[in-house]
Amino acid sequence: MNANKDERLKARSRDFHLFHALMMLGMTMLFLPVIGTSKQNIPRLKLTYKDLLLSNSCIPFLGSSEGLDFQTLLLDEERGRLLLGAKDHIFLLSLVDINKNFKKIYWPAAKERVELCKLAGKDANTECANFIRVLQPYNKTHIYVCGTGAFHPICGYIDLGVYKEDIIFKLDTHNLESGRLKCPFDPLQPFASVLADENLYSGTAYDFLGKETAFTRSLGPPNNHHYIRTDISEYYWLNGAKFIGTFPIPDTYNPDDDKIYFFFRESSQEGSTSDKTILSRVGRVCKEYLCFEDQ
């Protein structure tokens, strides 16, 4: 037991020092404004889809012939599977052969929601559908999944079975729940989420227009689901935030001090309203105690 504990402490120590080294490096760029497009943003090499096929370095997924819009990936190394979130579909692929015996779940938006979406002026093909934006491992047997639901976010659970050998891939349609504050309304809205200790941490827009953004924590242990979010006030926590990613990172040697880090961009609240500088930001949320820090 002591040996295992020492190994865990050593691993956390390595993660801790690596994280702080990266943070020191990244802080030099943290508050620099994003101005235009520089030469550094131009890729050194460009390959067309045809070039990739001719290179024999990729294997196309043949199940995508329906013209689906793939937006979300989740790698399940333990089972040797890859989950894909697309328009109205979730796919389960084998890492050995992605085109052999793959499974899919058809999960469209409700018809009445599609009609309301179109009446609001949204595009029937590119917006008024259920685009899968969240695929997170909830526990050893279930995946938590959320989709835009034709601008009415919705979430649920996918059953993968108890054992690795199980070939179960089923959406529990009897326990669907609202995806507001967990998933964006717009399929193209930048957002970030991660699931840690059965809690879902999200940085997302929470209104139909995608203008109001917040950090949220939702889910939790079974039979004790709840959520919290950054306050709504005239002094906004976030100002048009565009989320990039979020990660659970050990902050000290004590697991109780672990934090969730959000990386995003937002408009500066200083200066005139017509000339807003875009700033890169890092937000930190406590896991054990309710707190938030913005840098």
Score class of each variant (00 low, 15 high):
188 L>H: 07
231 D>C: 01
205 A>W: 07
181 L>I: 04
159 D>Y: 10
214 A>C: 06
130 N>R: 00
180 R>S: 08
134 V>K: 06
229 R>K: 14
158 I>W: 06
161 G>C: 15
154 I>Y: 03
151 F>T: 06
146 C>F: 03
134 V>Q: 01
193 S>D: 08
217 R>T: 07
143 I>Y: 06
231 D>V: 05
148 T>C: 00
180 R>Q: 13
136 Q>E: 15
230 T>Q: 13
189 Q>S: 14
189 Q>D: 14
194 V>W: 11
211 K>E: 15
191 F>C: 00
203 G>H: 10
163 Y>A: 12
209 L>F: 13
169 F>M: 10
142 H>M: 05
209 L>Q: 11
223 N>W: 05
212 E>Q: 11
235 Y>D: 09
235 Y>E: 12
190 P>A: 08
225 H>N: 02
183 C>V: 05
146 C>Q: 06
157 Y>C: 10
230 T>A: 05
157 Y>G: 04
224 N>V: 09
153 P>R: 12
217 R>P: 07
197 D>N: 08
214 A>N: 09
228 I>R: 12
165 E>P: 02
135 L>F: 11
180 R>T: 12
156 G>T: 08
135 L>D: 05
169 F>S: 10
167 I>Y: 03
213 T>Q: 14
191 F>K: 03
193 S>M: 02
145 V>L: 03
131 F>P: 03
158 I>T: 09
182 K>S: 12
191 F>M: 05
149 G>F: 09
204 T>V: 11
216 T>E: 07
209 L>P: 02
187 P>S: 13
162 V>H: 00
222 P>E: 01
172 D>S: 08
227 Y>E: 05
157 Y>E: 02
145 V>W: 00
128 C>S: 13
144 Y>H: 13
219 L>M: 15
165 E>C: 01
198 E>T: 07
194 V>N: 06
131 F>V: 03
184 P>H: 14
202 S>T: 15
148 T>R: 06
155 C>N: 11
217 R>W: 07
228 I>G: 12
157 Y>W: 07
224 N>I: 06
139 N>D: 13
